[in-house]
Design a protein around this nucleic acid. Structure first.
Lengths: 241, 241
DNA sequence: AGAAAAATGCGTAAATATTACACAAATTTA
DNA sequence: TAAATTTGTGTAATATTTACGCATTTTTCT
């Protein structure tokens, strides 16, 4: 344990943290990973004990190559979820002078998208939980605000990025994809126009799963055609809706 | 002057700065405001002396309400340009562990748009200068990279925001507006289609400047119709190009 | 001075994209 | 067992985007 008052500077320095908004999708609802604050953390972080919060923590000045590394490291430590640094997208800085009661702390918020079905098992259930969007409890610090901003960023990004790639399992149905878009964009689409548009981009391939279609009520399975998607993206497209 | 080694913390803290990319437009070219490092600054900031850099400086932990306040304060101190905190848009965080040779410094980059004709006189010519885009010298620290990212952010934002409002003088011509769009988006548009699209949005009003039009080679003057623009923006539009 | 080139405004036809909408079949719900 | 819901498919009407011609005046070139 570090000795108290070990590090001195000529001018005041703020503490810097990275916070993570991790979005998942279970085929029906958008979800967010939250942690319960308090329990087994060291003394210096005992603010808002017992409340729910975004996973995140302090920049390690000597070890974290970038602030995204902080995000990845802290997410792992606090929730068990191991993501690549590249999976984190920066949302923005939250720097209000009073946002942390202990000292001046500015945080760089990030978001990440995960395939819920593949990572849910990794989530340390003692400390962390997945909450449905629209069923989020009040959060510690200014994390409510951070969550709103992160969501609106996701909402913007969905126009240009294949968020489906990251949130959906390998195989998925068109209704699932549409529901995901509707959840994020908070609108409803005409089923047929949605399908036409998606097919027009040619980034979906129908999956032959052996079972001869039993009937029209059993939706077809698709997977993303990564090659076509990448080509499309390089040429600068808009996955416009 | 603060005594050396006055501030102590239990854990290491990074220094935090705000950097500013200030864009202007002179009717022909996009420009950026840069400062010459070195001269009359205190001892602690004598890295990259003599090189050009983005204006910016350290967060005042006790006084700066947010990091955007840092940006506004430092821009004023270093260039004489006095902008409102609201004029700064966050670009992102640059946190590479070695980006500053002195100590760990993470910076939050911002950009701002100004009417060059109205602020050029305020610019302190001893310390700062306006550089044409495409004629930017090598910059200190990782400021080259910051500049590129800021520009690409501006390029994105122009689809949804009226950057013309901020960069152009009160009155301007359609060719000027088009040239501005072309400079930022780095493409060429068909003159007639550009005009049609702009007029279709109904955010331009033709200015009657008394002088009966002398000929088609004298472009008409317009100003922005702020009311219509605001209404359009509230309803969620895309100033699509 | 005169000729050539470039810039401006205006408008329209063709191509492309978006929107609205109906039906048949199978599954789920009541 | 009937009713309601869900899925797939396709087309006509509407709106948007793109490509382009012409008359005129200023600027540039010789």
């Amino acid at each position: 344990m570090a000795k108290k008052g070990q590090y001195t500077y000529e001018y005041q320095h703020p503490a810097v943290t990275a916070d993570c908004v991790v979005f998942g999708y279970d085929g029906k609802e958008l979800k967010v990973l939250l942690i319960k604050r308090g329990a087994e953390k060291e003394a210096s972080t005992t603010a808002y004990v017992g409340e729910w919060a975004l996973p995140g923590g302090f920049l390690d000045v000597e070890k974290d190559k970038t602030i995204a590394h902080t995000a990845a490291r802290e997410l792992k430590e606090e929730t068990g979820l191991k993501l690549s640094v590249k999976d984190f997208k920066e949302v923005g800085t939250f720097s209000d002078i009073k946002r942390d009661p202990r000292e001046r702390v500015i945080t760089i918020a990030h978001y990440a998208l995960v395939k819920l079905s593949e990572v849910q098992a990794d989530t340390d259930a003692d400390k962390a939980d997945w909450f449905s969007w629209g069923d989020i409890p009040h959060l510690a610090f200014d994390h409510d605000k951070i969550l709103r901003v992160a969501f609106s960023r996701l909402k913007q990004d969905i126009h240009f990025e294949p968020v489906g790639f990251d949130l959906l399992p390998e195989m998925f149905t068109l209704p699932q994809l549409q529901n995901l878009y509707e959840s994020i964009l908070e609108v409803k689409f005409d089923r047929r126009n949605f399908a036409n548009k998606m097919k027009h981009f040619k980034i979906l391939s129908e999956v032959e799963d052996g079972t001869p279609r039993k009937g029209t009520r059993t939706p077809l399975k698709y997977r993303f055609d990564k090659d076509n998607y990448d080509r499309l993206k390089r040429n600068g497209f808009q996955l416009e809706f």
